[in-house]
């Protein structure tokens, strides 16, 4: 398990096999986060931008 903290509320978040650009929701504050860096078992998250007008299936 790799770990990181929510940039919005600092909650601890764990992810199995994190992948860069992986998206996840902060279980504490609900912020939509993206994995931007993985070093060993440390993850750095950033808040994802709002969806673009051409996003989807």
């Amino acid at each position: 398990m790799a770990k990181g903290n929510c940039p919005e509320c600092d909650a601890k978040i764990e992810i199995e096999d994190p992948v860069i650009r992986e998206v996840t929701e902060c279980p504490e504050c609900g912020a939509e986060l993206e994995v931007v860096e993985v070093k060993g078992d440390k993850i750095k998250f950033s808040v994802v931008e709002l969806s673009g007008e051409d996003w989807g299936e």
Partner: peptide, 9 residues
């Protein structure tokens, strides 16, 4: 990919 969601994982 530009997002790795549950689907991509």
């Amino acid at each position: 990919c530009d997002r790795v969601r549950w689907d991509e994982k």
